[in-house]
Amino acid sequence: MTEEEMVERFKVYLSHQMPDATNIGIDSVRSIVGGASRQTFSMKLNITYRDAEVLKRVILRREFESGIIDTRVRTEWDAYRAFFNTSVPVPEPLWIEEDPEWMGTPFFAMEEIVGCQDFFRLFLEPPYNAVREKVGERFCEIMGTIATTDPAAVGLEGKLDKPTPDECWRRELDYWEADINRDELEPHPVLRAAIRWLRRNPPPPAQTVGIVHGDMRGGNFMFNRDGEIKGILDWEMMHLGDPLEDLAWSLNRLFSWEDHDRLGLMLPRGRAIRIWEDVSGFKADPEVLLWWEIFSSVKGMAIWISMNEVYATGKNSNTVICFGGMFASDLQGRILLKQMREVS
């Protein structure tokens, strides 16, 4: 869908949602690149509603016709609803529409967080390198808080499947292996060896079955020059599972390529793990965490392979998808090889 079509259709949708609005203007529309799972637009709404003028910057996220990851906007929406106005900062969710009649595919809109950045490589550059450890500490605190949040207390009870503690690892591995089996365009012998190793060496049952963000890493949160985190984003892979899954994913070396020992290029690995343990009250046993870190590489490969597949088969011709899939699968493949050489 082109930007112009999207704007027109969204106007019609807003008129339907707000029949009392006498004017609905949309301008400063900007396509946000980089997302592999959603078409994302930033825009400014100028609405006259019951004689008052309302100005609001919003983000609209629309499912791709052929997404990389099989996720629904409803999952993200539920996450924003659950954590809005809690100690886990998220933008305010505004509207959700799952009927494809309006925009071709389901979508939702939320408040835009302004004055912040999300590109984690900025932690290598001034002025952000000066605050990266502060951001990292806060990131680990938030990750620990998510892990200990009672799903029922934030309205997520019954909305997410709940595995038993001993099912968590297998459910995730089965899911991502099936994804690889479906989308793989060529054999990946290192990846297959890793999957076999994960099955031969399963982790113990999860310490708790908690909320897992599913994509908790640099690039998926908004930070500012003061070192504050203003919003945790990209909740489309949220599920219930082993909290170590999020910690391990955040430690994925793909997101700290230039400095592997620093979580997300922010915080030294040891300190990051300690903060997460202190806040969550859970233990990150090195051997168990290693299992989840190798799993993270497998999950990463599954996603990058799916990106390559949708591009190669013409389902999604977005250049970002092609570039992202190629670079990430190369680097993640190198990371996975190193991990496997350490254990095999």
Binding site: R30, S31, V33, T319, V320, F323
Partner: peptide, 15 residues
């Protein structure tokens, strides 16, 4: 001028 066009062209060149 446009961000997504700039990104598309830059990434196409890198590809």
């Amino acid at each position: 001028e446009k961000d997504h066009e700039k990104t598309d062209l830059g990434l196409s060149a890198l590809l």
